[in-house]
Amino acid sequence: MSKDSFEPNIVAFLCNWCSYAGADLAGTSRIEYPPNVKIIRVMCSGRVNPMFIVNALHEGADGVLIGGCHPGDCHYIQGNYFARRRIAVLKKLLEYLGIDERRVRMTWVSAAEGKKFADVIREVTDDIRKLGPTHQIRRSNSW
């Protein structure tokens, strides 16, 4: 596959209360965004175990996006703060192992920010398209 025709496969973990609703708003407002993103709804960005992210990369995702509420707006008061810490550490670890840290992204999108959601997806998709497919920890499935 040439680099131009490469379409990244992005998994997005979106929190039920803000980011997922933001994605919903983008849809109902008919804002167009790249179809490369596969959304998994979680109750809170704090629910995203770093192993979810590693597993997504492992199973074939080229990028992972975690979406949560803006700081202070978390439905569970502090879930997104915990997530922020974890992701910060995980990104550093991945970078150290030779996996580009830009493959793991995090964003705050509120339920009212349909436009921002579409912008973020566009940005992430473009970035990861440039990075190309992951090969480092991709499961081989070649028995």
Binding site: F82, R84, R86, A88, E101, R105, V120
Partner: peptide, 15 residues
């Protein structure tokens, strides 16, 4: 570490 936070934790990587 991971069961606490500060409101001003670094977040320059967040979009």
């Amino acid at each position: 570490l991971l069961s606490m936070f500060k409101p001003d934790d670094p977040e320059e990587f967040i979009l």
